[in-house]
Nucleic acid binder design. Sequence first.
DNA 1: GATATCTGCAACACTCACGTCTCAGTTAAC
DNA 2: GTTAACTGAGACGTGAGTGTTGCAGATATC
Lengths: 197, 197
Amino acid sequence: MGTTGRRLRADAERSVRTILEAAERLLRENPGATMEQIAEAAGVARATVHRRFASREALIETMTISAWQEIAEAVDAARPYTAPPLVAMHQATANVLQIKSGWRFALGALPQSGAEAARIHDEVMAKCDVVFTRAREAGLLRQDADPLWARQVYLALIGEAAHSSAAAKPLSGGDLDALATRVIDTLLHGLAPHRPT
Amino acid sequence: MGTTGRRLRADAERSVRTILEAAERLLRENPGATMEQIAEAAGVARATVHRRFASREALIETMTISAWQEIAEAVDAARPYTAPPLVAMHQATANVLQIKSGWRFALGALPQSGAEAARIHDEVMAKCDVVFTRAREAGLLRQDADPLWARQVYLALIGEAAHSSAAAKPLSGGDLDALATRVIDTLLHGLAPHRPT
DNA sequence: GATATCTGCAACACTCACGTCTCAGTTAAC
DNA sequence: GTTAACTGAGACGTGAGTGTTGCAGATATC
């Protein structure tokens, strides 16, 4: 799918988009949702879904790849290699939250190894680790902090933040910054009162 | 199921246990696992599974209830109302980690409202909130911390800690305390270096 | 040791989702 | 305006999973 041969006609391309969005919306609430239901939600005949995606599996794979590509772009846009670590973290967090709130299903389970999405996923993780290393060198993280645990916690916090923004669909810029701040702040300082300096 | 009429014979009771454990093990890795596969993993005929559990749905519900009951006991054992907040938190965390690492599937998705499991779940959450309130009053948490966010972060950290202990099955007492300490410490102080007091 | 219960095996009916195909009508592209 | 691509509708075959049943043999229970 996706990179399959000839360009699609404009309306077909629109169908693909609509189906992907509907699938995300449905599968988010019920991972067992039917192709029938997805088609209906997309305002399209079931046959059309099968025309655009060889199988249910292929549909989900396309969703996953698409979502991870957006995540990768979101991370890159934060200039993880050059921006000051705290800035990069905040910016990346905000960007990723934006994407993640829209692809909660597709990004839910980590892509199975071997898949194209897994490659992108690994790239993103690598960049994430770079930022964390830079953050540690800048004194933002403890020297002795377990890098794996740090990343794990960070990703979990992002997940939770994206989850809590389930209600508000559009997620304005202000909300994004507030959420990102909360994530970073919790990650770095936890929820205990700040010690007097 | 479970509370259905007459007592089961000893061997039947054993079957039930075996099936529940096998189901947890299988479904953890593949939520779409078949009754057939579960039966095989339990070393039992498929028909037997259906004899003990009216339907796949019933099987999963029993698992969920059972798991949440254990969680509730784990929390109670930490004396959330009377022990010093930090002690209660640590103890409850360790206890819950123990249970959660064994029921990762059953405790994965929050029980659908109306179900028996949901009642227990709510009770547990209420007790969790009590501990957090006490912790705040004791100065362990910021006065202005959003209680929902605090709980969300706490649960997420527990989830991550239980996840990382996937490899080591038995999870010795020492491991438990180490994990619990890590969870509480991260929750309260984050990953930044401690400020000089 | 008599009895009720549990089990494996094997067959069965049933449902449901998937994927395919055809055809007539619509719509973009050039 | 012609052509090629796309779509909806409907029917079809298929496979897999579910849940049921009957029976003969094993096993707890008293």
